[in-house]
Design a binder for these strands. Structure first.
Lengths: 147, 147
DNA sequence: ATAGCTAATTGGAATCATTCCAAGTTCCAT
DNA sequence: ATGGAACTTGGAATGATTCCAATTAGCTAT
């Protein structure tokens, strides 16, 4: 854990697990800390590779299980682009994703409440939306104007 | 083809294909007409089942090929929810999708230009978005007040 | 019409992410 | 300590999609 934000998140971890009747196992903790450490929306495979630095014997199945658990507990969000592998994101603020098609990188875009409200306003009144997903596809000019 | 809208779409079909240097094969035509006929966002498997009523010998691989071709030609859009099978949609107007989690049904939600503009406005100025995807997940009250 | 060429279709094998399963391990509560 | 539930593990199974090599169909120029 690197900074105070992650520290706080990590401290809450055991309690969050407990409050769902779940155990704060080493596997779950490392998977979570890997996500907090490097917020580049890794896939399950990438998480697997990173966690093995600390837990060399963890299995891929367990990584999937842990990620699923973290999603259930609302500690991380699962993100999908087309049919690519699911990516994981510990950013819990309302945000959109920008998928850079030239690099494959994913960037979080903060969503102001008024924009979110405006988007939800397009729904007919009886449509009950539990969540909205907003994804941009495009590219970032490769700092061409970098002088 | 059932109505004038589809008729118009169908008439343009051969030309659209030709202008991309592609052939308007029976397989492609039937796949396209199946999508126009019943706009319920079918999966490739569902399209396969429907097309076989008219072309009993078509293969699933061809259905995939045709769908891909239609997407390339901008005649249909591919739609994904989480990691479920890709669904196909002949609605070319800017619209969002509402995914009803109780029934599995998908509904198109028209997106007024100002909402689209407002959403795009959350991007930093150097982010070049080629497309935006907006997806709602929720449910519709089962016409409880249907008297 | 016809030969030749390229595009398109086909069935089946292969791929890839993910889930399932059955067996072993860990952790707590008695 | 012990029994049981929660977890983890490796490997098999699944499901959607893509790949591939072998036909087949559709133009184009003769």
């Amino acid at each position: 854990m690197k900074n105070s934000r992650d520290q706080a998140a990590a401290e809450g971890f055991a309690e969050t697990m407990a409050s769902s009747g779940l155990r704060a196992t080493p596997q779950r903790e490392f998977v979570y800390s890997v996500l907090l450490d490097q917020r580049d929306h890794p896939t399950a495979d990438e998480v697997y590779a990173r966690v093995r630095n600390n837990l060399p014997t963890i299995s891929l199945a367990t990584v999937y299980n842990c990620l699923e658990t973290l999603v259930q507990c609302n500690l991380v969000r699962a993100v999908n682009f087309e049919r690519g592998p699911t990516r994981y994101c510990p950013n819990l603020h309302p945000h959109a994703h920008f998928h850079d098609e030239s690099t494959g990188a994913t960037h979080d875009i903060d969503l102001p409440p008024d924009v979110l409200a405006r988007v939800k306003s397009v729904l007919p009144p009886d449509y009950d939306a539990r969540s909205v997903e907003i994804t941009f596809h495009g590219s970032l000019p490769n700092k061409a104007s970098n002088r």
